[in-house]
C-alpha cells in the first residue's frame, strides 16, 4: 500500500493559505486510499495557479495550454484507456476559455476525472473577475463592479447530460478526498468542482464565506444523487451551495463506444504494415 507521501514530489509554491493546498492534500489522500499507481496515472493541467499541481503531485504530467485540458486528456484516455486520466482546471480554464470543450467532454462522457478548482477569480494574472465571479465584484478588470451574471459549472454539466457531478470545498479535505475516490470509480466523465478560496485576490469568497454558504448533501438523508429534478432544484437555490455528490447516473463511457477494443490500447499497438490488407483496400481505386 502506498501512503500519502508517496505522491508528494515537492512542496508547492502557492500563497500561504491558498485553497489549492487543500485540493493537493485531498488528491494525495484519495490516491493513497485507492493505492493509485503513479505510473498508471496522468494528470493534465491547464493554465492558472492550479497548473503547478504537476510540479508537486507524483504521476505522469502534462501541462498544456490555457483551456485545453479536456481535449488533451480525451486524447490520452482514448489511446490508453487503462490509464487513470485526471484533468485539473481553474474556473477560467474550465468555464471561460475552455467552456466549449467542457460541455462536449461532459456530453461524450469520456472517462476522465475532471477537477475544477473554482476560486471565482483569475489569480495568476493578478485578479480579474472570472465567469463564476458574482455580479458587482470589484476587481482590476471591473473597477466599477462586474456587470456579468455568473455561471455555474455543475448546472451546466447537468444540462449537458453529465453522469457524475460533485462539488467539494478545499476547506473540507476529507470530504473532497472522498468525492475524488468516488470519481475514480465512476465509469465516464466525473466532474468535481472544488470551491477554493484565493486568499490574495478574492477577499469576498473567503473560507469563512464559503463555510457560511455551503451545506453538505450527505447530511440530508432524503437526498439521492440519482434524482435529476432534485439535483436541479438544489443547484438552482441561490442562497445555499450544496456540497457533495450532486448527481450520478450510468451511461456508457465514450471510450467504450468509440474504441474497437478498450483492452487493446491504441497507444501500444505495434505498427506493422499489413501489406495484403492494405493492397486489398487499394483495390477500390482500380
Amino acid at each position: 500500500m502506498r501512503n500519502k507521501e508517496d505522491y508528494h514530489l515537492e512542496d508547492p509554491a502557492w500563497c500561504r493559505g491558498c485553497g489549492l493546498f487543500g485540493v493537493f492534500d485531498a488528491l494525495k489522500r484519495a490516491a493513497a486510499a485507492q493505492d493509485l499507481d503513479p505510473e498508471q496515472t496522468v494528470v493534465v493541467t491547464g493554465i492558472g495557479c492550479h497548473g503547478r499541481l504537476n510540479n508537486c503531485f507524483r504521476a505522469y504530467g502534462f501541462h498544456g495550454l490555457h483551456g485545453r485540458v479536456l481535449p488533451v486528456a480525451t486524447g490520452v484516455k482514448l489511446n490508453n484507456p487503462g490509464l487513470l486520466v485526471v484533468g485539473v482546471s481553474g474556473d477560467g480554464d474550465a468555464y471561460s476559455i475552455g467552456l466549449g470543450h467542457f460541455i462536449h467532454a461532459v456530453r461524450r462522457n469520456v472517462g476522465i476525472v475532471y477537477l475544477v478548482v473554482d476560486n471565482r477569480i483569475y489569480g495568476l494574472t493578478q485578479g480579474q473577475f472570472s465567469p463564476t465571479t458574482e455580479m458587482g465584484f470589484v476587481s482590476i478588470s471591473s473597477p466599477y463592479g462586474s456587470k456579468e451574471f455568473p455561471i455555474d459549472g455543475p448546472r451546466l454539466a447537468l444540462a449537458a447530460g453529465g453522469t457524475f457531478i460533485a462539488r467539494g470545498f478545499s476547506g473540507n479535505v476529507a470530504h473532497l478526498a472522498g468525492l475524488f475516490e468516488k470519481a475514480v470509480k465512476h465509469r465516464g466523465f466525473a466532474l468535481i468542482e472544488a470551491l477554493s478560496p484565493c486568499v490574495t485576490h478574492n477577499k469576498i469568497n473567503t473560507y469563512e464565506w464559503f463555510r457560511k454558504n455551503i451545506y453538505l448533501l450527505e447530511d440530508d438523508s432524503g437526498y439521492h444523487p440519482g434524482d435529476k429534478m432534485e439535483a436541479w432544484t438544489r443547484l438552482q437555490d441561490s442562497r445555499r451551495i450544496p456540497i457533495g455528490l450532486i448527481y450520478q447516473e450510468q451511461k456508457p463511457p465514450f471510450e467504450e463506444l468509440v474504441l474497437p477494443d478498450v483492452h487493446k490500447p491504441i497507444a501500444r499497438e505495434g505498427l506493422g504494415v499489413d501489406v495484403p490488407r492494405l493492397e486489398k483496400i487499394m483495390e477500390k481505386f482500380r
Binding site: 493534465v44 479536456l70 481535449p71 480525451t74 486524447g75 490520452v76 489511446n79 499497438e269
Partner: peptide
C-alpha cells in the same frame, strides 16, 4: 482547437495521431 489538442494528447500517449 480540440482537434489539434486531442491529436497531441493521443500522440503524447503513444499513438500515431
Amino acid at each position: 482547437l480540440a482537434a489539434m489538442n486531442m491529436a497531441i494528447g493521443a500522440a503524447y500517449a503513444g499513438a500515431r495521431a
